[in-house]
Computed example of a mutant assay.
Amino acid sequence: MSTAHEVMARDNSKHSWSADPYADALRAGRGPLFLRRSDGWLLPLDVERWCARADAVDQQVLGRCEGAVLDVGCGPGRLVTELAAQGRTALGIDVSEAAVAHTLDLGGPALRRSVFEPLPGEGRWNTALLLDDNLGIGGDPRALLRRLTQLVLPGGLLIAETVPADVDERADVRIVRGPAPRGATEATFRWARLGTPALLRYARPLGWRTVDQWSAGGRCFVSLRSRSTDSTAEPPNSTAVISSQRARKPSADRPVADS
Rank of each mutant, 00 (worst) to 15 (best):
9 A>Q: 15
225 R>C: 08
255 P>C: 09
42 L>A: 06
57 V>R: 05
215 S>Y: 01
253 D>P: 03
204 R>K: 09
64 R>M: 12
168 D>E: 12
75 G>R: 01
108 G>Q: 14
183 G>S: 13
23 A>F: 09
39 D>L: 10
113 R>P: 04
57 V>G: 05
223 S>V: 07
221 F>M: 00
80 V>N: 10
238 S>H: 09
224 L>H: 13
23 A>N: 02
63 G>I: 04
234 E>V: 15
223 S>W: 02
251 S>F: 05
165 A>C: 07
83 L>I: 06
193 R>C: 07
172 D>L: 06
215 S>R: 10
112 R>E: 01
111 L>V: 12
179 P>F: 03
40 G>R: 03
60 Q>T: 10
143 A>L: 04
46 D>V: 03
2 S>K: 13
254 R>I: 02
235 P>R: 05
169 E>G: 14
205 P>I: 04
83 L>H: 02
157 L>D: 02
66 E>V: 15
246 R>D: 10
52 A>I: 06
150 Q>F: 01
40 G>E: 09
27 R>G: 04
181 P>K: 07
255 P>L: 09
202 Y>V: 04
125 W>R: 07
121 G>M: 06
44 P>D: 12
85 A>R: 15
204 R>F: 06
104 L>D: 08
127 T>E: 11
20 D>F: 11
249 K>F: 05
241 V>W: 07
74 C>N: 01
42 L>E: 08
94 D>Y: 00
57 V>L: 11
133 D>M: 15
160 A>V: 01
169 E>V: 13
248 R>E: 11
51 C>M: 12
155 G>D: 07
208 W>S: 00
253 D>G: 07
242 I>E: 10
223 S>D: 03
164 P>I: 04
109 P>N: 14
245 Q>I: 02
201 R>N: 11
198 A>P: 01
144 L>G: 00
187 A>R: 12
163 V>Q: 10
21 P>C: 05
224 L>R: 03
111 L>N: 08
104 L>M: 09
240 A>L: 13
5 H>T: 11
28 A>V: 09
48 E>A: 15
203 A>C: 03
7 V>M: 10
12 N>R: 15
173 V>F: 00
146 R>D: 10
37 R>W: 11
160 A>H: 05
138 G>S: 03
126 N>G: 08
43 L>S: 15
17 W>A: 08
63 G>M: 02
15 H>R: 15
138 G>L: 02
24 D>K: 13
42 L>V: 11
257 A>G: 12
51 C>G: 06
148 L>Q: 01
68 A>S: 09
174 R>Q: 09
240 A>K: 13
250 P>N: 12
20 D>H: 08
168 D>P: 07
118 P>K: 14
157 L>E: 08
5 H>W: 06
69 V>R: 01
188 T>L: 15
83 L>S: 06
233 A>T: 15
21 P>D: 02
69 V>M: 10
102 H>F: 05
94 D>W: 00
232 T>K: 08
151 L>Y: 02
257 A>D: 13
206 L>I: 04
220 C>E: 13
64 R>Y: 11
